[in-house]
Measured scan of single mutants.
Amino acid sequence: KRLSEREFDPDIHCGVIDLDTKKPCTRSLTCKTHSLTQRRAVQGRRKRFDVLLAEHKNKTR
């Protein structure tokens, strides 16, 4: 699936709103397109961004 077609989940996706499409970014939490500050500011996550990021990195090892 293309990035734009993915169902957005704030707990596994970057989530920064794309200015062109007005939709949240569906790249992983480790997205290189958006800064850490931008990704931390995303609302609606179950846990703090840093906790989710650490969990994500542990899963992908």
Results as ranks from 00 to 15, higher is better:
L52R: 02
T60F: 02
K57C: 09
Q43W: 05
R61M: 15
K47R: 11
E5C: 09
K59F: 11
C31I: 00
T30Q: 09
K47G: 08
R6G: 15
K57E: 14
V42Y: 02
I12G: 05
V16N: 00
L52Y: 02
K57Y: 05
T21V: 10
R6H: 07
R6Y: 07
Q38C: 08
V42N: 01
S35H: 06
A54H: 14
R61W: 15
V51C: 07
D50W: 02
E55Q: 06
R40Q: 10
C14I: 00
D18M: 08
T37H: 14
D20C: 07
S4Y: 08
R6M: 14
R6W: 11
L19I: 09
R2N: 15
L36R: 04
D9N: 15
S4A: 07
V16I: 02
C14T: 00
S35A: 05
V16M: 01
E55M: 05
D50P: 02
K57M: 14
D50E: 09
R61D: 14
K23F: 12
V16C: 07
G15F: 03
L29A: 01
L19C: 13
D50G: 03
R39D: 02
D50C: 04
R45I: 00
N58E: 15
K23V: 09
K23D: 04
D11E: 13
K59I: 15
E5F: 10
L3R: 06
E55F: 03
E7L: 09
G15C: 05
G44M: 03
C25L: 00
L36A: 05
I17N: 07
L52I: 01
V16K: 01
E5N: 11
Q38G: 04
T30A: 09
V16P: 00
C14A: 00
T33V: 11
Q38F: 04
I17H: 10
D20S: 14
E7H: 11
T60S: 10
F49V: 06
L52M: 12
K22V: 11
R46P: 03
H13V: 04
T30H: 05
E7S: 14
R27W: 09
S4L: 06
D18G: 08
S4M: 10
H34I: 00
K22S: 11
L3Y: 12
T21Y: 07
R39N: 01
K22A: 12
